[in-house]
Amino acid sequence: MSEMIEQLMANPLAAVALTLAAYFAGDRLFRAIHAPAWCPPLLVAALLLAATLWLLGIDFADYRSGAGWLMLLLGPATVALGLPLHQQMSHIRELWRPLLVCLPITAGMAALYAVGIAWLLGASPETLASLAPKSVTAPIAIGITERLGGSVALLMGGLLVTGVAAIGCVSLMARWLDIHDERLIGLALGINGHALGTVRAFEIGPTAGAFASLGMSLTGILTALLLPLAWHLPGLIG
């Protein structure tokens, strides 16, 4: 049995098939159990896949080398994000002044708060590099963390926790600060909660959704351009 599995896993398509199967099964299970709004369907699918790999005794390194073929598509998919960004241009023109001031600060803060707190609590440099792009949408964040020398797996966990936390924090803070403007709530969800926050924003309303995807794209771009530069700055000075 285990020899058979080893033989199969030598073909990258086996890992691709496992991923696809877990993806669809996770989606079904997600609907069947009426999972709460804060639980992303992806988490269900990932748990299923992890359990399957563990049950079949498949080495994670073997799985990852096969699934790498799937992740190859992340490059063109990241480029594809330029299309929705182009469709957001009217919103960008409408609000470019506040966005220009606000985005660099908030995108910077999103990284700085987390890295600062983790550093104070004694996390390793690799962990810091994995947490820094925690508010950036996954395809872009993977590129950033690879550049910084972090762990992609830890980053993905961080993204999940951040997305879920951002949804809760935005609804809490909006009530506390008495903010009802869908544009602001959408932006806050997109800037801090990447794709998970954006999905939540579309549930609130189309305006919130549009501004969330705007916030998500611009945060992603800004962080991708500035974070690696900022990261190497201390090294260049010291």
Binding site: L42, L74, P139, I142, L160
Partner: peptide, 12 residues
């Protein structure tokens, strides 16, 4: 995109 990032999520 969700499918494409799954191998990374499982890694955690």
């Amino acid at each position: 995109l969700g499918l494409l990032i799954m191998p990374g999520v499982v890694g955690i």
